[in-house]
Design a protein around this nucleic acid. Structure first.
Lengths: 284, 284
DNA sequence: CAATCGCATTCCATCTTTCGGAACGGATGT
DNA sequence: ACATCCGTTCCGAAAGATGGAATGCGATTG
């Protein structure tokens, strides 16, 4: 979830004789359209216009106009009763994006491998601001019900992938993050204080993999390692997730290095991609 | 106050470039942003600004500004060398959209079932204008290499899912489509003439499933049936796809009814969902 | 080694588009 | 029948979008 505090409205407009002010509403139409898309993709079936208007803080006519535009292009699809759902164009775009993003494509085999070797749910997540988003996962065998689905988000500071990404950050950025705002506790185990968080991240840096000991959800443990490409740019994290009594400390100690190795191999592949491009270019 | 006398500064404004006729310009910024998103999702790794500008027919500064906005929101992600790829927010949105769209969710079990029972690749596609888009698929076993991936598109008139959707259309709409423009031939087998197409669709209407006999790709055969929800609204099509010598006429005759049955069951589920919604809403 | 090309980026004057409050009919539910 | 709530239309005012020209950078070329 995003809060509305993203406005920032760069250039400080001095005197703003604006008769209809307050609620931070808008920047450009593009930003609004993006918010709408995000709402459309959200769970909860088709959304009604008024509901969307409330959720986004936009005026009804504005939402209406944009939805019409989106619908016209197939990004939204109106239902019989005047609600809107994600349209075919958006779904197609979604499918294409997930399939063609190199990180996802290359991660897939590792996910499958990790899953079969550990029996746990394996997934790949990318960073989005102060959270991570799961964008690929390999279901654990036989209804190993964990509450994780594609698109699921978790705070950077309170789950394995986030911690792994933090541990791979330059010191300056890590400090900046640690200093930024309070880090809410999701469970009684969540590390919320700066020192504790820093220590947890530090351990991840040393071992090469991060461990989530019920930080995000009770009885749920995770292991993750960061993935980067040739430029050293962070691309995401490979992670395992399972119930605490299955992913006990012994298993974690066993699987951690496996996840780390997978992340390194994947990183190498992503680095190679640039080379592959050159190859293609040089080839017939 | 300055009189206009000293406006200086090359007043002349030689050619009052009023040309901007309307090449591929288009309309609002939202539409442009959508085009950009689509390009970002496309295969071929990160895209460079100039390339995008060319592909979309937009001016460089325009593309640049929009990409910056998209990047600011995490929908696009700039790479080191000034190119852009799909950003985390877009990927997250994509994952969420695909996972929460009821049609996709409910289709998944049927896809898995169809795949195991037929040994062919099973997929679900939705209509987008004059084409269909594959948005979910169940890989065929052992490297059954078929050229199909999530996001893949096919013309309505030349592939099983499209034909199935056409066969479920009201007569008026079907006629309108058949009359609209030439329907290009993708293989020597493609039905291109109105009469032939109408007949093919007619057969699908009667049997309840459509068959693609190498219309789209040589040596590739498909079987599909339309899926609709409680409102009678078309939601997509379940389909099988395989090599001609595997999906021979006998198999097609055998699998056709299976696909049809799956599509009906899925339709019933989607219908039920709407009913549940109405219940919740206390409607009607 | 210098000239050239292509790219990303910035600037700016013009004006097209957007924005949202208010008002309007049509549903729904009481 | 009344009170809401919703989707939709209208409109003036203002914000943002637009693309040509110009700049600086880097790689490719002669």
């Amino acid at each position: 979830m995003e809060c509305d505090c993203v406005k920032l409205s760069a250039m400080g407009k001095p005197v703003n004789t604006r008769p209809s002010p307050q609620l931070a509403a808008g920047g450009g139409p593009v930003e609004k359209a993006m918010e709408l898309l995000e709402v459309l993709a959200e769970p909860g079936g088709p959304h009604r216009l008024a509901a969307i208007a409330r959720r986004t803080g936009l005026a009804k006519p504005t939402v209406h106009r944009h939805l019409r535009t989106l619908a016209e292009f197939g990004f939204a699809e109106p239902t019989e009763d005047g609600a809107y759902r994600a349209g075919p164009r958006l779904l197609g775009l979604a499918a294409t994006a997930l399939h063609t993003t190199d990180a996802v494509r290359h991660a897939q085999p590792y996910l499958a491998d990790l899953r079969t070797r550990t029996g746990q749910l394996a997934y790949f997540a990318v960073r989005d601001g102060r959270e991570t988003v799961c964008i690929a996962l390999s279901e654990a065998p036989r209804g190993h019900r964990t509450t994780l689905y594609p698109g699921a988000r978790a705070p950077l500071h309170a789950a394995a992938p986030g911690l792994a990404l933090l541990s791979a950050l330059p010191d300056a950025e890590l400090d900046a993050f640690l200093d930024s705002g309070p880090h809410p506790a999701l469970t009684p185990h969540t590390r919320v204080e700066r020192a504790a968080l820093a220590e947890t991240v530090g351990e991840a840096t040393e071992s090469g993999y991060a461990v989530d000991e019920e930080f995000e959800e009770q009885d749920t443990v995770g292991v993750a390692a960061a993935v980067h490409d040739a430029d050293g740019r962070l691309r995401g994290a490979l992670a395992l997730r399972g119930l605490a009594f299955t992913l006990d400390p012994t298993s974690v100690a066993l699987y951690g290095p496996m996840v780390r190795a997978a992340a390194r191999a994947l990183s190498a592949e992503l680095g190679a991609r640039a080379g592959a491009l050159d190859l293609v270019r040089g080839q017939r």
